[in-house]
Each structure stands twice: as structure tokens, then as C-alpha cells.
Design a protein around this nucleic acid. Sequence first.
DNA 1: GGAATCATATTGTCCGACAATCAGACAGGC
DNA 2: GCCTGTCTGATTGTCGGACAATATGATTCC
Lengths: 247, 247
Amino acid sequence: MFDPLGYAPAYLRVSELIRGRILRRELTEGAALPTETELARQFEVNRSTVREALRKLESSGLVGRRRGGKRLYVTRPTREAVGGGLSQALALHRTRVVDVWEALQSVQPGIAAAAALRRSDAALARLERVARRFAGRHADRAQAVADVAEFFDALGEASGNPVFVLLNEPLLGLLKPSLAIIIDRVPQARSRIEAAQAEVVAAVRARDAATASEWMARHVRDFRRGYEVAGIALSTEVGETPDAALS
Amino acid sequence: MFDPLGYAPAYLRVSELIRGRILRRELTEGAALPTETELARQFEVNRSTVREALRKLESSGLVGRRRGGKRLYVTRPTREAVGGGLSQALALHRTRVVDVWEALQSVQPGIAAAAALRRSDAALARLERVARRFAGRHADRAQAVADVAEFFDALGEASGNPVFVLLNEPLLGLLKPSLAIIIDRVPQARSRIEAAQAEVVAAVRARDAATASEWMARHVRDFRRGYEVAGIALSTEVGETPDAALS
DNA sequence: GGAATCATATTGTCCGACAATCAGACAGGC
DNA sequence: GCCTGTCTGATTGTCGGACAATATGATTCC
């Protein structure tokens, strides 16, 4: 009958108030936040309370520190921050590699099509560079995985759609570990990836959305074959490698 | 030449340590965290430091409080928590409605196909219920929008793929405001949505992936028509309505 | 068994303090 | 002129202690 009358601790209200200012663009990216003492004075709360609020904003990626800096600045959540949150959530939701694969299969052709339609020359250049790099050096396993991921990323950028860019990050992050195994165990993996990338790049250059989409679908479908050949169970759960992230 | 020698403040290390335990499932969902004082004792830091660490975990949705409760429990990030982070990030990345629409168009057909292939009877029942509800009451604008969103959500659930469920949330959240305008201004919007939902439901019931996918694509494509008819510029930026979230 | 009562533990918030270090000014040497 | 070293002040990270409000759990009573 009655909703509980909402009570919010001060650190939450402070955090929400600052968050609102940032989202409303009253605090624009790159602007320095007032110092903790100053914030405490303005909100009329203790500095400890302000600090708790700031920690919240910090971990949503809305504010951050410049390298080695002390003060906090307003920032946009980076790809990594957003992706980290999502992939962490997926890991806890018992997501399996096949789920990630299915999502990739569903979204990548659309990205490729959009990239083909709207790519800039610079974006095309990056795409070509990445593909060339992957094809060029057949040495390191970790590097190869990173190159493949960067190809996806470059394609997302080429699409000019920030949604695609942000979606790519967590999916690739979850894909990487199993991709590494595939590259290790499936001899023909590298050449097939290389071929698919070449076709996609060509289609994107020619602004041929249909072909780009088609080859990208094929590219992703290949991963599934890769799982099977490499002997990775499709029901394997993706697990966030709990990075220490600190020294 | 030299990498910066990483220094991490104590609150960060504490937060990462706890986060690691959760991700490694050593702290399982629903378990109560030790009290702040106890954590401070174990980590040998001050309680203030522990609290800052907890605020970080809190905002990534890894720990939470039970309604009106005092202690913290380990939780999985809810759909809303994840979606909120993503849509907040998208809003700050100057995402336009057309970007969101394009992403939906790329991902929804895949979801519909997966749902058709794997839907359980319970999931089908929910899908039918939601569609019927939308068709049944033609009254409230806000309710209609919520119903449409829930249809997407139900389809995601039916796919049995947590990735889809988690991706849907933020995209729908960003879509809603403009969808409300469409429903207000475009007279035939409701009947077209209703028709598309009916076809999708039928295809999902029949486990016909191709048809489900096709109608879902059509459904989403209709939104774009809706934007044009309603006079919404495709380049409109999606803006997070900065919810107060507190009273 | 269920309801009211009470003691205890825990959180939210405050205050004050101090060391480390970052930022900027300033001077000196090549 | 530019780099280096030095100094000063401001700011953050961390600590210890304190107290009110209230959730938690045990206890008693019907």
C-alpha cells in the first residue's frame, strides 16, 4: 500500500548529485573536480563522506585521475571500464563460450555492414594495417590473439557507432582466452582468419555492405568450428581472469 | 623505456582482493560479507579505508544490501546495474538514436532466432502474455512503452543466452524515451507493433528461427519509420534522464 | 508457536591528525 | 634558453577515535 520512504545515506546522495551534473554536461569532460575539502565544504558533509562518494564515481568511470596525478578529473567511461563491468557480470552469470559466440555472430555482421557503408579513409587505413600486421607475423600466440581482437575493434570504430565499439570490448575480452587455445591447437586457424580478414577489408574498402556482412558472418562462424576442432566444450563457462591489476 | 612502477592505494587493493574472491566464486552469491570492522582487522587497515573499498564494489554491483538491511551481501550485478553503466557511458559518448537503432537492428534478429530455437514453454508463455497485454490495453503511453520493452526482454530470456539479456537492457533503456514519442505521435504505431509481436510469437512457438528473425528485423525497421513519421531527427542524442534515485 | 522486549553489533557520519607527494614558483648552472 | 635542484603550499591517503541510529539476535512472556 505504501512505498517504503526512501532513505539514502549521504555518500549516495553526494555521489548522485555529482553524477547528475556530469551526465547533464554541467561538468564537462576534462574539467577538474573541486578538491575533497572543497566538496565537503559545499555539501556540508565530512571529507570521509565525500571520499566514499568519489569512490563510487571512480569505479563507474565517470571521474578518474591523470597518470600519476592526484586530483580527479571528469572523464568519459573508457571502453575498458564499461567492458570490464559487463564481462565481469557475464562471468558471474555463468555465461558459456557458446553464448558469447552466438552474440558475436549476431552482432558482427551488422557492424561490418555499417563499417562498409560509413568507413572513413582513416578507419579503413587502420583496418588494413591491423590485418596486415596479423598476416605478417606468425610468431607469438598472445600477440595474434590481440591482433584478432584489434581487428574487431577497428571494424567497430569504422562503423562510427559508439554502441558497436562499446559492445565489442566485453565480448572480445571474454572470447580471447578460448581464441588463444584455438590458435594454438588448430593449425589452419591463422590462415583462415587471415583470409576472412582480407575479404572483409576488401569489402569495406569497396563499401560493399552485403559482402562485408557475409564474410564477417563466415569469419565468426569459423570460430565455432575452431572450438570443435580444438576440443573446447561449447558449454565451458567464460571466467574472468581475476587480474591483480595492482603491484 | 621504463614502465611506471605501479602504486595502488590501499582502498584499491582491498577492493580488488575482495573482487577477486567473488569472481573466483570463493565468496558465493548470497553470502554475507564480514563486517567492516572485521575486514579492517583482517586487512590491517582502517575502517574508513575498508569503506572506500566497499563503495567501489557496491557500485559495480558485486555487493549489495538487502532491502532495509544493514549488512552487505555478495550479489550478481543485476541487469539494471550493468545496463545503467552502459547506457550512462553511451550517453556520454554522444550516442544518437540512430546508433542505438542500428545496434538493435543488428542484434535483435539473432535473439529472435535463438529464442525460436531454444525457447522453453515457460518462456513462450511469458512472451505470449506480454504480447497479449500490450495488445489488450491501449490506454497508457508509459505503460505501452514498458510493455514493448518487456517484450524484447522476454525474447532475450527466451533465448537462454545471458549475453542477450544483458545487452538488451541498456539498449532498451536508451530507446524508451524516443519510443514514447513515437507511440504518441504515430497513430498506426501500436497496431504495427502489435502485428509484429504476434508474428514473432507465432514463429517462436513454431520454433521457426528464420521467420522469427525476419519479423523481428521488420519490427525494428519499423521503429526507424516511426522516427521519421514522428519527426524525430535521427541524429538526436540519447540522453540519460538523470534519475534522482533518491528521495 | 508467536509477539513484545531488550542488549548488542553494525553502519553512517563526524572530527582531527599526519605523512607522502604533487604542483607550481624560484633560483642556479650548462 | 633549457635543464636541474630546491622550496613551499595544497591535496590526497590513511589513521585513530567517537557517537547516534538502527538492524540483529536472544530472551521473555502470552
